[in-house]
Design a protein around this nucleic acid. Structure first.
Length: 471
DNA sequence: TAGCTCGTTGGACAA
DNA sequence: TTTGTCCAACGAGCT
């Protein structure tokens, strides 16, 4: 008698190696690999446009590594799963857990409904180093400060699971009930999607190559170098981690094999921040929409669509901010320090609600991740856990002078400022007329005047934050 | 249990 | 030019 068919439902685990649920499926029988584009449950956090581009290419790659047997579906997962189980006499489904609140609710319902039909679901941890419910204070409460969360809650409790090799004896089968990949309609009609795709290599092998390249060119300078957006000292692994082309466990152990020094420790603590975000989300399902600190509900945000649009389009007239926003639009990615600079600018200098920034990032980032994105926006706005103090307002001029010393980053994304001398590159409005003329810059014509005065808006923000304290 | 120290990412200003 | 101090307040963890 032939082996039973086990469905493995790929979600944020789009890889063959270190995939606990896929390995379990392969151990039990022949594997029917599927992907379901859920169009019913995500609500306002339906995947953004850049993530969909990433997903499309990632699925195409995954399908190849499964011998073309990956089957695509679209719609409501439960009836799709029930139909497949009936069609192929399937009694077991495996998946790796997802942690967005809507996914947690959905998966629970699906598990219950399938179990009522005599179908067993086996779920695994394939995307976090520590399960969010396993990390807590001695009294059982969740941590709200990163350092004790990571040092005591994570590091002192258990080492992360060691990564698994790809299953050697994984026999896959196909179904004729799936859709072609193109039918999922993930790619935008705009050429923008192709532009984004040009900046990345997709798939599991590409993720491994990215990690290896980072180890060679970035790791030994990571701790300091990670602050310089024009330098190759950051890993750029975030989109691969998000969609699961690589697991944090694989990254963790690959880096530690290099020998633990302060650079490796620092990078691992960044993985720790990812875990912290997931812990916050797990314990606060409203994190993407509600201020973690309720006193911020009274904050006097400005409703100013023109300013928001200028920020989104990289036309604020503040070079460091515009460079970041244009990097995002062009590549689907933004260097982490620049994310903090543009975030601080939107929230504190423009006075716009952090949720507007969260939404824009959600749509434009190839690594858009519900936990990281909402936790980080709350952090920069000051309303989150372990948040930046209200008086910590990034000055985009100073930040540029410190971290884009030779101006390479700004000049890359704002070619109209390419000939500005370093002295005025980060504040062209302060340049003498002759300097602007020689650089070919006419403010208000080929580069905007600043939409806000940095000093005055900083003081207004401090006053607004102080008003919270009194109320 | 009380008291103490510390906390991812900064800026402005005075000396 | 560089360095020290202040800008809050509070949770976590240590002694």
């Amino acid at each position: 008698m032939s082996q039973p068919i086990i469905i493995h439902w790929f979600r944020h685990d789009q890889r063959v190696s270190d995939n606990p649920a896929l390995t379990a499926a392969a151990d039990l029988g022949r594997v029917l690999p599927i992907y379901i584009h859920d169009t019913i449950h995500p609500g306002m956090h339906a995947m953004g446009a850049a993530s969909r581009v990433w997903l499309h290419h990632s699925l195409a790659d995954l399908s190849m590594s499964l011998g073309g047997d990956l089957a695509y579906f679209m719609g409501d997962p439960l009836p799709i799963l029930l139909d497949l189980c009936q069609q192929h006499q399937v009694k077991t489904i495996t998946w790796n857990r997802c942690y967005a609140p809507w996914q947690v609710t959905r998966d629970k319902q699906i598990k219950t409904a399938l179990s009522a039909q005599g179908i067993t679901v086996m779920s695994f941890n394939g995307s976090l180093l520590w399960e969010p419910w396993e990390v807590h204070k001695d009294n059982g409460d969740p941590y709200r400060v990163f350092t004790p969360f990571y040092r005591k809650g994570c590091l002192q409790v258990a080492a992360p699971r060691e990564p698994l090799l790809a299953p050697t004896d994984c026999e896959t089968v196909s179904t004729d009930r799936g859709l072609p990949l193109a039918a999922l309609n993930l790619l935008p009609s705009l050429p923008w999607g192709e532009e984004i795709a040009r900046h990345w290599d997709f798939g599991e092998q590409a993720a491994q190559r990215r990690l290896e390249a980072f180890i060679v060119e970035g790791l030994s300078s990571y701790k300091e170098g990670r602050n310089y957006p024009a330098k190759p000292y950051v890993s750029r692994l975030s989109p691969y981690l998000h969609m699961g082309q690589i697991s944090p466990n694989q990254v963790w152990y690959m880096l530690r094999d290099e020998g633990v020094d302060s650079n490796v420790d620092h990078f691992c603590s960044e993985l720790g921040w990812r875990e912290f975000s997931y812990s916050l989300l797990y314990h606060n399902p409203d994190l993407p929409t509600q201020n973690l600190q309720a006193k911020f509900d009274a904050f006097p945000w400005q409703d100013n669509p023109e300013r928001l649009i200028a920020w989104q389009q990289g036309k604020t007239g503040i070079p460091m901010v515009d460079a970041g926003m244009r990097e995002l639009w062009k590549t689907g990615y933004m260097h982490n320090r620049v994310r903090m600079i543009v975030g601080s600018f939107l929230v504190k200098n423009l006075g716009v609600d952090w949720r507007e920034g969260e939404r824009w990032f959600w749509d434009c980032l190839v690594d858009a991740d519900i936990a990281n994105n909402s936790a980080s926006w709350q952090w920069i706005a000051g309303c989150g856990a372990d948040a930046a103090p209200y008086f910590r307002i990034f000055n985009p001029v100073t930040q540029g002078e410190k971290f884009d010393v030779d101006g390479a980053y700004v000049r890359q994304y704002i070619p109209e400022l390419a000939h500005m001398p370093d002295k005025y590159l980060f504040q062209p409005w302060a340049a003498p007329r002759l300097v602007l003329q020689e650089a070919g810059v006419t403010l208000g014509t080929n580069y905007p005047q600043p939409i806000v005065d940095l000093k005055a808006s900083r003081e207004a923000a401090l006053a607004a934050f102080a008003s919270l304290k009194e109320s």
